[in-house]
Amino acid sequence: MKRNDEQPVAFNALNRVTWALRRAELAVSTLKEQRLRPLGMAAAHYTLLISVHSEPGLTGAELARRLNVTPQAVASLVARLEGRGQLERREHPRHRHVQELHVTVAGRKALLAADSVVDDIERQITDGLGPKETAQLRTLLDRVAETVREA
């Protein structure tokens, strides 16, 4: 039996692009959580609200696929936001067993406040990079996503 420190790992494992992407994602996620917390909102709530706001009428299953989370996770988030009066379910016009999700007036107010926080984080990042590097980063990240989808 081998000990964990004897497992073969590439010498540059922590220098991989995938690890750099993960570190960046964790740093941004942590900052969002810290700055949204005073608003009583988690980053997951913001993500769900902005998704439904941009595409009213999404179902829980559609949201789960788009956000790459389980339907149970979406159901839990929906229940919490619905309990706060920020989200509402409406019967689908053609499928009576399907419920569409819609942001309420209270949800739009909460989303507006949260989006201001996220916009500040975006500005912090883009100010640190500058316009040219920001454009390059967006292009490169789009290419990464495209390359991974094609794999």
Rank of each mutant, 00 (worst) to 15 (best):
R22N: 09
A10G: 07
V117C: 06
S76M: 10
A75E: 07
R138G: 03
F11H: 05
R3Y: 06
A42W: 03
D127A: 13
R89E: 04
L63Q: 06
T18W: 07
R94Y: 11
R16C: 04
E146D: 09
L31C: 05
L87I: 04
R90F: 02
A110T: 09
V28W: 12
T70D: 06
A44Y: 01
L31Q: 13
L81H: 03
R80Y: 08
E25A: 15
S29C: 07
N68Q: 12
V118M: 06
E100S: 10
V28D: 10
A64W: 04
D115P: 03
V78Y: 01
T134S: 15
E82D: 07
A20V: 06
I125K: 00
A42E: 12
E55Q: 15
G60R: 08
R123P: 01
Q124D: 13
L81G: 01
T18D: 10
E133Q: 15
A106D: 15
G128T: 02
P8C: 02
G128A: 01
A110I: 00
V117R: 04
T47Y: 02
V148F: 10
E100F: 06
A75M: 04
P131V: 04
M1Y: 07
Q7A: 10
R80H: 12
E25C: 11
T30C: 14
E62Y: 03
R96G: 08
L26V: 01
R23K: 11
Y46H: 14
K32I: 03
A151S: 10
A110E: 09
P93M: 01
E133Y: 11
G60P: 03
E146R: 11
A114I: 07
A43Q: 05
E88D: 00
L141V: 15
E88A: 05
M1N: 05
S76E: 12
V105W: 10
R138N: 07
T147V: 02
S29Y: 11
K109W: 09
V98D: 02
R80P: 00
A42K: 11
A135P: 00
K32A: 15
E55W: 07
A27Y: 07
T30Y: 15
R65E: 13
T47K: 03
E100M: 12
S29P: 04
I125R: 00
M41G: 05
R89N: 01
V74H: 08
E25R: 14
